Simulated assay, not measured.
Amino acid sequence: MKISAPDVEGYLTLPLQFPSTPIFPQPATHYLYIRPHEPRIPDPDSTRSLFIVNTPIDTTETHIRHLFGKQLSAGRVASVQFEDVPTKKAGVAAATESNLSHRNKKRKRATADDLQSTLDQINLPETWDRKLHKSGTHAIVVFADRASMEASLKAVAKAVKKGSSIIWGEGIPEDRVPALGIRRYRTHDRARYPARSEVLSAVNDFMTVFAEVSEARKREETRKLAEPDEDGFVTVTHGPKLNSVAREEEMKELVERQKKKAEGLEDFYRFQSREKRKEKQQELLRQFGEDKKKLEEIKMRKGKIRPE
């Protein structure tokens, strides 16, 4: 039976049938509005993309791939960008990989903005295994090439013209999409208490990148201060002044720290042990000479005849 669909200027209106459920046994019709993606500022993917409005709230990338690849037998979908789901940019993903996985390898120093973007992408483990969208959400479907996009658009127009009945999500294996209903909330309840190792890994990554962001900011500020301004002047900065007392205390602390560092290293080399033994021997001889001299002086005082 041909389904009459409302016309929207500039869009192809594709009717979808929602399958009946035990809770709501009556079938329902949902309409997708599809047109080529024509952003105000074109990007490299806009020529091979379709703009879809009014996606169902339970839409996933698997649903979109199944719709165009299986149910419409059209082009191959490369990616799907939903309105309310943030996507990683290529530069950010590359920065994340280079900063978190290859820190020890020699690479070009990342800027503070790149590191900040990486920091924004580090999150704690998700507690929901599936995103539900708000009603009327739009999505951008990027195809493998322009030919796939055009073939998909023609397939949509053909299905609309024939009034084909397309059941939303029909034919998708259950293990391909996270379940809804009570199972969704059971999974959410378990995910609220992630493993300690996962939380620790996310926190460590965040703190590491945060430290790198701080260092990068300091380097950039130092570099900017060292550059002449428009008038050719260089800003000279200095730290807090120390008075004589504070300076003396600082030097004392420095000497004490140096002494502590040197503890246990006196006999590190063999020649140091020999010199230490010689010094000790000379000290004993000196003390022996002084004691001998004192003893002779005592004897001389005792041997003197005192007048009566």
Rank of each mutant, 00 (worst) to 15 (best):
R196E: 15
Y185G: 00
Y185A: 06
S244M: 07
R183Q: 15
E215M: 09
Q258I: 02
V236S: 12
K241Y: 09
Y269D: 15
E174M: 06
A246I: 03
P228N: 00
R223D: 12
D175M: 02
R186D: 12
K261N: 07
D205Y: 08
R257H: 08
E174L: 11
S273K: 06
R247Q: 14
A226V: 01
A262F: 00
E227C: 10
D231F: 03
D267G: 03
E275V: 10
E230K: 01
L265D: 04
S273A: 12
M251A: 15
V236T: 08
S244P: 00
E221M: 12
S273M: 04
T235C: 11
D231Y: 02
Y185S: 10
M251I: 13
F210P: 03
R217I: 05
H188V: 02
D231L: 08
S244N: 09
F206R: 06
V245Q: 13
S214W: 06
Y193Q: 13
I182K: 15
M207K: 09
P194H: 12
H188A: 13
K260M: 05
G181A: 07
F233G: 01
E212N: 01
M207G: 02
M251V: 05
D175C: 02
G239K: 02
R223Q: 10
E227S: 09
F206V: 04
A191G: 01
F233C: 06
S244I: 04
D231V: 01
K260H: 11
D231H: 04
P240R: 07
L225M: 05
L200D: 15
K218M: 06
H238M: 13
R196Y: 11
L200S: 12
R274Q: 13
D231A: 13
M207N: 08
D189Q: 10
L254W: 08
A195G: 14
A211Q: 13
R257C: 02
R183A: 14
H188S: 09
L265Y: 04
F271D: 14
K261P: 00
A216H: 03
